[in-house]
Design a protein around this nucleic acid. Sequence first.
DNA 1: GTAGGCTGGCC
DNA 2: TTTATGC
DNA 3: GCATAAAGGCCAGCCTAC
Length: 576
Amino acid sequence: MKLLQLAEHFERLDGLTSRNAMVDELARLFKSIESPEEMREVVYLTEGILLPPFASTEIGISEQFMSRAIAQAAGKSVEHVKELYRDTGDYGLTAEKLITWPGEGITVHQAYNALLDIAKTGGRGSIESKVEGLARLIHRISKKEARYLLRVPMGKLRLGVGDPTIMDGLACAYDGRRNLRPVIENAYNLCADMGLVAGILLSEGPERLKDFRVLLGSPIRVELAERAESIDDIVRRLSRCAVEPKYDGFRCQVHKNGDEIIIFTRNLEDATHMFPEFVEAARSIVKAETAIFEGEAVSFNPKSGKFHPFQVTVQRKRKHLVEAKEKELPLRLMAFDCLFADGLEMLYQPYTRRREALLKLLGEGNTIAPTDALVTDSAAEIEGFFNKCLNAGFEGIMAKSLISPYMAGRRTFDWIKFKRNYAKEMRDTADCAIVGYFAGRGKRAQWGIGSLLCAVYNSEKDRFETITKVATGLTDKDWKDMKETLDAARVKEKPARVESVYKPEAWVEPRYVTEILFDEITRSPSHTAGRDGGRTGYALRFPRIITPIRADKKAEDATTVQEIKELFAMQHQATQ
DNA sequence: GTAGGCTGGCC
DNA sequence: TTTATGC
DNA sequence: GCATAAAGGCCAGCCTAC
């Protein structure tokens, strides 16, 4: 298949909003493919990836290197390319505007391999090679091909097509209906490789997909949780359920095949190297010869035994010096599910059975231990458990249906998370002065605004110190209004009273106050709020706007640095 | 030999 | 992780 | 309710420039 043909399918998908129409268009695309190899490549590109995540092939190209490659190919300056990008918010469109050649009519296979080669390049001089390789590729393709192909390394294909739509498309390509969707979906859930599934469907047909079984060492797509509005909401949806603490760490899926252990992350990356203590413990304390189970990895203080906040645990996300960190920051795996045990596929069993299997799996020892689980249908009991969890410094609770199987690859109300912030009366918010804004990308590019730079007030120094950027919580209309409002206060240079490391596209005189909800205050290397000469300030985790403009407040009424410091101290009483 | 820019990946 | 939007 | 897009903080690893 020619790359141009694929680009034309993408262009048609791009123009659609109806999911049914997208499925039909995808079916036409997949039907025109003849070899399983080509199917793999087309499916990966449609997903906007080169290979599934556990293959660990990163492209290593993002904004900066993409700008350079386009500039090189088009014989323009990098500044010129970046200027175009500011307007379009999309490197595909940017390249399209600069391409003046017709393209060589290369095949999908040639384009795919070129990107894969770029991904595989590493070591000294590799950045130059990557940029050069990409520039050469750009030189061989037309405007339309560039529009879509270049969005792949950026991870922003923007077709409105995701895995579920692709699966419907594959089913529809096979027989014009969607009956095969469950078969395709089950196979995909068990191997996490859509290219493989599509290739097999083409070469061997659906019967072979029906034979798919759990394979040790091959990651199973994880189940995700929906959110509850309140504890009553949990009881209403699940009635009798199991309630577990929600730990703030890394999700791990552990595969044990005898002494061979592999650990996958939530996104199914192979992260075995990060967790030597789990590898050791899985060998020694897991009784079954073969098993797949999941848990949350959290670091703790070996002296007090208390869990650390996420910002500390995240330091274990490393390849090197793992042993040294292991002593300083040991990890515990709080296990909460069992998908496979001693040759049995547990994932299709209800929670209760899986929980039994999990408990049976785990021997004595702290390194891998099951989570607490309270089974109840009483809102009062759940609330008590929730409060206990908060006091222990956990994120909140997870409530789980007792009867549903493990819903691989899905986010459903079978698992419900409840955090402090989900309840209105337990929220922490900050009133922040808006001191600048950044140009948006994708659909926000047309408005010329995509996020706000926000500051708290240092009343002693009469300075506005940045504490977060924020980009969510506003409706499309809010964004347009916001831009108009802020442009009236826009200034050329950073206002004298603003302290910021970030340089937004537009500076704004501190005049407007926005109310921001957040989950946690963290120490920050990049924001200036509360810096005392050093380079560590404070920042907000998961910021979102809940009141666009507080008309009743002027900039000097914003939350103060002092208040932020007090909140930070309070949230650390639970942990430490 | 190291600081800092860029990227990817975790939440 | 969060929120908004269209079907 | 589902599926998708746009965006947050911050860490470590890789590579280049000084």
